[in-house]
Amino acid sequence: MIAFVRNVRLWFAPEQVREEGSTPDYRFSLANERTFLAWLRTALALIGGGFAVDQFLPDLRWGWRVGLALALLAAGVLCSLRAVNHWMRCERAMRRGEDLPASRFPALLSVVVALVAVAMVAVVLLGWAG
């Protein structure tokens, strides 16, 4: 958590990042940027999914609908925060010539998405049955 706060301060202090280590090959930085953008797209897709749940499942009870939508929106916020945090960590690791940081987040996110998908299938099937 403390490391995260220190990282947040660096987002707004580019000159401090540039003091560290040496500038890597620009292609590595661009690859890191594309990975960041891919995670940002994932976050935006989750946010869009939140809207979609609210708009395209009108038969669902209010509590379920809003709960599912808010869960997807929260996942989107988490995903975007993690995107910039991981981008910064990779950028600093490349400058210092260290190994890139490992992350549990992709596994976590896929488990959450799988659970939400199973819940949706259950909701649709029960909706037909009932």
Binding site: L10, W11, F12, A13, P14, V17, T23, Y26, S29, L30, N32, E33, F36, L40, A43, L44, I47, G50, F51, A69, L70, L73, A74, G76, V77, S80, L81, A83, V84, W87, M88, E91
Partner: peptide
């Protein structure tokens, strides 16, 4: 080209997060 400035990355993420708050 030089690397993406951290401030621009943070701003892009802030846009996404504010959109999520409006969505909520």
């Amino acid at each position: 080209p030089t690397a993406l400035p951290p401030r621009q990355a943070a701003l892009a993420v802030l846009c996404a997060m504010a959109t999520a708050v409006c969505a909520a």
